[in-house]
Design a protein around this nucleic acid. Structure first.
Length: 99
RNA sequence: CGAGUAAACAUGGCAGCCGCGAAAAGAAAACCGCAAGGUGCUUUUCGAGGAAAGUCCGAGCUCCGCAGGGCAGGGUGCUGGGUAACGCCCAGUGAGGGUGACCUUAAGGCCAGUGCCACAGAAAAAAUACCGCCCGGCACUCAACUUUUGUUGACCUGGAAAACCAGAUAUGCCAACAUAUUCUAUAAAACAAAAGAUUAGCUGUUAUAAAACAGCCUAUUUUUUAAAGCAGAAAUGGAAAAUAACAGUUGAGUGCCGGGUAAGGAUGCAACGGUGCGGUAAGAGCGCACCAGGAACCGGGAGACCGGUUUGCUAGGUAAACCCCACCCGGAGCAAGACCAAAUAGGAGGAGGAUGAAGUAGCCCGCUGACUUCUCGGGUUAGGUCGCUGGAGAUACCAGGCAACUGGUAUCCAAGAUAGAUGGCUGCUGCUUACCAGGUUUGCUUAUGGCAGACCCGGCAAGAACAGAACUCGGCUUAUGAGUUUGCUCGGUUC
RNA sequence: UGGGGCGUAGCCAAGCGGUAAGGCACGGGUCUUUGGAAUCCGCAUGCGUAGGUUCGAAUCCUACCGCCCCAG
């Protein structure tokens, strides 16, 4: 995925994505120890997981994602995460067309 | 009311939706895996902390054949108790800090030995060494004249006294009052240093014999003047110790020798007790009083230790320096360890080994007694289950104990992940703070008002820390927002 | 989980009870027409932080902070 996928980047996260040939989406998280302690890393992961769950209905099916957290993501709130993820998907042209 | 001190409590509450993990029961035989096994469906229940943290101690548990001895190493260090154990806790003792409540305390032993104590200082533990002080003896030098310089040093009279006070005198008629009464000067005497001299009181010059001149000093008298011991002028007077040698006396100094002494000796964190009086040639716990300490004895206490009496006994500090003494310590850690499943291999080469491999940090003994190690090659591909939470357990009551803690009874079961579970959103509400509007009340005041404080109600907004289980407990340490309660202390005000 | 080590000026570092050596860099002076070189002078929060022992601590002890390494 790192070799063939495409990326979109924001202040807090880097998002890799590529098609997987299935009828559902998958997401993985990669958070380095540079970001913080285990509690901090776990909290970032949970927040983005929750955000991804919220906007998953608007995303096209059949993709794998890798989400890499960057250092400013320590102080992120849930609302910011939702907005950020949505804008990244829009830039990657992953959203379903509005009916 | 303010400031402080000690201890305890607590780490918001009630709901709803979605999600994550676990347990139990049920249903069904769906999915993944070669298998062990796991996932999934329904219902119910449960799901972070006082520090879960740091990993600084101690234990349980598991394995190392046995867990033995000695050395080495490490730890602890006032006393008594608590505990499974501890470096922890409780109660006390000593020392230190604080006005106090209270707090802090690694607090055994430098007459077992060794080391260190920079700089300074006579000396840092070595001896009564050095300087000094005192006594005695010997040797040597200087003085017993003057001047200069420096220091002290009275100034009309008296008062401790040049300054302050009082008085006196003079002038202006008197009083008051004012001014004046030697003030950049200096006599005698003493001391110190230097220099010089040897007939004017002193200085200088000339001559050469016991003088002269000049200037100055000084005593008396006269005079001038408003006034004179003191300003000016005049007159008279003012003296004597030549040198050298020898001997002695007195005083001072220097050096050497013998003896006494530890009072004093600038320093330093620290100097073989401190202060004072007596005593002495000078001194000394040499004697005495008080204070500090040591030793012995007596008494109290379980002990650390405390109190008293006697005794001149007076001994540097440092062991968070080596060390000595007492007590404790076998090692490794849940990636311990046990079982199950699958697969590959039961290899090759080098080194050591019954003259002893290996046996959980080191060495020796004892015990067991055959493997150990390096390189190459191959397999497994982040396999599963247990250990894993019922325990030195939690809560309540009773009993023992000053307390830490212990015993008994009853009730209860309360997280268990394995790349790692607790999250997201919403509603109501409690707490704190700020602002706005209103009300009640207290104090002050320039008084139908203004200012300040407290309380009540309403509105709106913000805030809520430190931090997250990784086998389990007991402690310690560190981090921590806003609080609550209780005991006690100090200060202020009012009654 | 267990064990070991380090922290001294901007940088590299010595010192391990008696008032912090040295080098590079930096600032100033001398020299030079100027620069370099040479030469002289200067530069420490008192030695990671906070307590303690000691007459005296960078050094000894305790706790904490940060960094590095090793074994399983």
């Amino acid at each position: 995925m790192y070799r063939y996928g495409r990326t979109v980047v924001s202040r807090n996260i880097v998002l890799y994505y590529c098609p997987n040939g299935q009828s559902y989406n998958r997401i993985g998280f990669s958070i380095s120890k540079k970001v913080g302690r285990s509690v901090v890393r776990n909290r970032i992961k949970r927040i983005y997981k929750e955000a991804f769950k919220l906007i998953e209905k608007q995303i096209r099916k059949g993709y794998d994602f890798i989400l890499i957290a960057r250092k400013p993501a320590v102080d992120v709130t849930f609302q910011e995460a939702c907005k950020e993820l949505l804008s990244l998907c829009r830039r990657g042209q992953l959203l379903l067309k509005k009916q």
